[in-house]
């Protein structure tokens, strides 16, 4: 069975993500051991909370993740796990994984922060991750910061909250969603099932 390593680096709740990935047909290995990344068919980086402490806890995983991506192992970051793919955040001075170029910015404006609840996505281009998911589909968001990729072509979908922001990224085998697919009902289940399909496809 195709296995996915769900990284347990002490940030947030792994219950729902593991549950949802199992429903998508993947064998889930929750692991806090960076060495175990090497044997997985895919990597999932969940996460809620603050960028600074999370990026410090993630440090031991940085090299194994880089090596896996070089071997084209698919990886999905969600929420804070997506933000940590970038270089820097306005939330704290610590650096992220830097797998994608750009900053994570704080929402500013005459609207409620955090951006919390169900909001829609618009695809910027086609991708196997979004197969069967039409524009205008709702996903569940909870965040006060959003990624601003320095290279626009990694943006796979946009969401409008006081202006458009990047809500899904794709760069080679690397994917990130600012929303929580594991909490996004049928649409989220479809996205995770597409991710599982990508993982199985690569594995042959």
């Amino acid at each position: 069975m195709t296995s996915v390593a769900v990284l347990d680096y002490g940030v947030g709740n792994l219950f729902s993500m593991s549950n949802a990935l199992r429903r998508a047909g993947l064998e889930v290995k929750v692991t806090g051991d960076p060495e175990e990344i090497g044997s997985a068919d895919a990597i999932v980086l969940p996460g809620v909370g603050n960028f600074g402490p999370a990026s410090v806890k993630l440090l031991p995983f940085a090299e194994p993740i880089r090596r896996a991506l070089e071997e084209d192992v698919p990886m999905l970051g969600s929420c804070l796990g997506m933000q940590l793919l970038f270089e820097r955040s306005e939330e704290s001075p610590e650096v992220g994984l830097g797998l994608l170029k750009g900053w994570v910015r704080r929402f500013q404006g005459e609207f409620k922060v955090p951006h919390m609840g169900w909001n829609t996505i618009e695809a910027a281009r086609e991708s196997p991750l979004l197969e069967g998911i039409p524009d205008g589909e709702y996903f569940y968001f909870v965040h006060s910061y959003y990624p601003e990729p320095a290279e626009g072509d990694v943006t796979l979908a946009l969401t409008d909250y006081g202006g458009g922001f990047t809500s899904i990224v794709e760069s080679g085998p690397l994917y990130g969603t600012q929303f929580h697919p594991e909490k996004s009902g049928r649409a989220g289940a479809m996205l995770l099932s597409n991710f599982a399909g990508i993982v199985r496809g690569r594995r042959g």
Binding site: S16, N19, E182, K183, S184, G185, G188
Partner: peptide
């Protein structure tokens, strides 16, 4: 209950 859900709880 949580096991049955794919929405926030």
């Amino acid at each position: 209950v949580a096991t049955e859900l794919d929405i926030p709880f």
